[in-house]
Amino acid sequence: MKIEKIIPLLKAKIVCGERRINDEICNVFSSDLMSDVLTLDSENILLLTGLANVQTIRTAEMAEIHYIVFVRNKKATEEIIQLAEEHEMVILESPFSMFKASGILYANGLNPLF
């Protein structure tokens, strides 16, 4: 599924990475625990998280994750956006809870990792 289709499904706002709006996503992982994210072997996934800080972006950078949705109205700070842009990441902000956002994406055919 393309990022541009995910945006309306999650009533999300894109805060950086607009030029990658046509990128295709197959797998989604939902977690607030960066320790868990760092154990993933898969790449090119969409990360749903309620943890909006610089270490979320650093974790994504190391784990080769380029697509992040901040759920339950968590906002990306200027520092987060700057770091995410440096690494060509797409950041979305959604008002939905992690559970709701995950459920919508699952119901629309995106795959879980486990």
Binding site: L33, S35, D36, T39, Q55
Partner: peptide
């Protein structure tokens, strides 16, 4: 609170 401290650091380094 930063998303760490789950006791997975050293095991993941070993992996």
């Amino acid at each position: 609170e930063m998303g760490f401290g789950a006791g997975m650091g050293l095991p993941n380094m070993k992996k």
